[in-house]
């Protein structure tokens, strides 16, 4: 069984983002970039399927600037077998719908049995690519997965839903999107980081695909959220309760 995992290079989750002065987005200069944390979980799950003898190959795909090759190397250092990078021009926004269309083109060629994606990218927080890809392929989808089992040509997936958990079965091929509790991704060891440099990485240009990736959204402005007014420190539980009573809160 071949497993494909799309990965995205995003601002590291520990970095406090700053809105760029022209309001076009956030400032990306000299900012630490990393693999989207949910994608890391997806890569880990695919590798575990391979280690369990269920998957035979783990293919990672990224769409973005040339530097996204770093993200693909990180995924291969974790244990993915090979990578495809679809390059886009610097500063061009590729929306989830366009990403899904490009991934569909790769999938039509590579014919994986399972795609595991992160549930959302922590930059645009759109939470859409996996669902859109499933729609374009006409495949079933199991989003927000916290547990994945492969049984008789189906993926049995426990999903994180409002109020608890839901377990569903989707026919393979299918798309699964990873939630936080699916697993804890491993750290790549130094020997594996060295080995990953020799693993195959194919590069293609987005423009070479017969896919319309023109953005549908125009950014009007980007702004910082309003700051909260400074509060006060209280010295004791009694004082706190008094303040809450004053405000009619308790």
């Amino acid at each position: 069984m071949k497993v494909l995992v799309p990965v995205k290079r995003v601002i590291d989750y520990n970095v406090k983002v700053k809105v760029s002065s022209d309001g076009s987005g956030v400032d990306l200069t000299n900012v630490k970039m990393s693999m989207n944390p949910f994608d890391e979980i997806a890569v880990e799950e695919a590798i575990r399927l391979k280690e369990a003898g269920i998957a035979t190959e783990v293919l990672v795909v990224s769409i973005g600037e040339k530097k996204s090759s770093d993200t693909l190397r990180s995924a291969m250092a974790m244990g993915a077998d090979r990578a495809i990078l679809i390059t886009t021009d610097q500063g061009v926004t590729i929306e989830p719908l366009a990403v899904a269309k490009l991934l569909k083109a790769v999938i039509d060629e590579e014919a994986p049995d399972l795609v595991i994606a992160g549930k959302q990218a922590i930059d645009n927080d759109m939470n859409a690519t996996g669902q859109m890809l499933a729609a374009l392929l006409g495949w079933g989808q199991a989003t927000f997965a916290s547990e994945l089992k492969i049984e008789d040509g189906n993926a049995i997936v426990t999903r994180e839903v409002d109020g608890g958990l839901q377990t569903i079965s989707v026919k393979l091929p299918a798309i699964v999107t990873a939630d936080l509790r699916l697993n804890e991704p491993r750290y790549a060891s130094l020997p594996n980081i060295m080995k990953a440099k020799k693993k195959p990485l194919d590069e293609k240009a987005a423009a070479d695909f017969d896919v319309d990736i023109t953005p549908r959204h125009t950014i009007v402005t980007t702004e910082e959220p309003a700051d909260r007014a400074a509060g006060i420190m209280v010295g004791s539980v009694d004082e706190l309760i008094a303040k809450l009573k004053e405000g009619g809160l308790v």
Partner: peptide, 11 residues
């Protein structure tokens, strides 16, 4: 976007 650290208006 970015976990609420920026607000974006899009058309």
């Amino acid at each position: 976007i970015y976990a609420g650290n920026a607000l974006q208006t899009v058309k």
